[in-house]
Design a protein around this nucleic acid. Structure first.
Lengths: 113, 113
DNA sequence: TCCACAGTTCAATTACTCATGAATCATTGA
DNA sequence: TCAATGATTCATGAGTAATTGAACTGTGGA
């Protein structure tokens, strides 16, 4: 992933509303959530939400899918993974202390490899 | 790690100069690099460098160590790891597609567990 | 003591980001 | 076709971030 795309993604994530937005969408899974429902959920105006959704979509962190009058937004897990991957592998060159953040998912109790 | 600290760290990383700075410092290892040498290396003014170093230090991503006239800056690998860890584990709840970014370091050829 | 060097701080300017509300577009149902 | 709904776009203003150059602090050597 090129540095410019990583910068765009980091800028997108470096905002309280948008980070909260990603968290909500993550919990919604791949079917996503209609913009109006998100706005009601986070109690923000439609135009403000639209602004932040556009930033996240532009950065490749979420995707929008039109369905009649609604637009359903869902996280682009691969896109988010690429950003984290850049920080871990390219930027930090798999430095052991940095990569320690990955170990929780390697522990036996959460069941993943 | 609390969300506010993560946001501060993401804001710090979401800048071309500072992301480049972190990359340079990562490659320098724990002994770090004197501010003046960094400025010459990146070809930026001392005051501009000082501004960005302060942002990164404030965000807990690097540390400064005074040695006579020089100040040596080095990455805080644990701090960076915590940010990535938040994105992977708390924010993205160890979603498999997101965590795919960790697999390179798990491959046999790079020799890490 | 004095000067030179390394680094930080400050003030001023410029540029950017965000929130708000009105206007607009698109779709659906009456 | 018209009104209602879901969503985006636009203009404006407020607040924040970044760059620049000058001034300042602290340290070491002549």
């Amino acid at each position: 992933m090129e540095q410019s795309r990583v910068l765009a993604a980091l800028s997108a994530l470096a905002n309280e509303t948008r980070l909260e937005l990603v968290r909500r969408l993550i919990s919604q899974g791949p079917e996503g959530m209609a913009a109006g429902d998100i706005a009601r959920d986070l109690d923000i105006s439609a135009s403000r939400l639209s602004f932040h959704l556009a930033q996240l979509e532009q950065a490749g962190l979420i995707t929008g899918r039109k369905a009649s009058r609604n637009v359903f937004y869902a996280v682009d897990a691969a896109g988010i993974g690429q950003v984290i991957g850049y920080l871990l592998n390219d930027c930090c060159r798999s430095h052991p202390e940095v990569c320690a953040c990955c170990t929780p998912r390697l522990s036996p109790e959460n069941g993943r490899i």
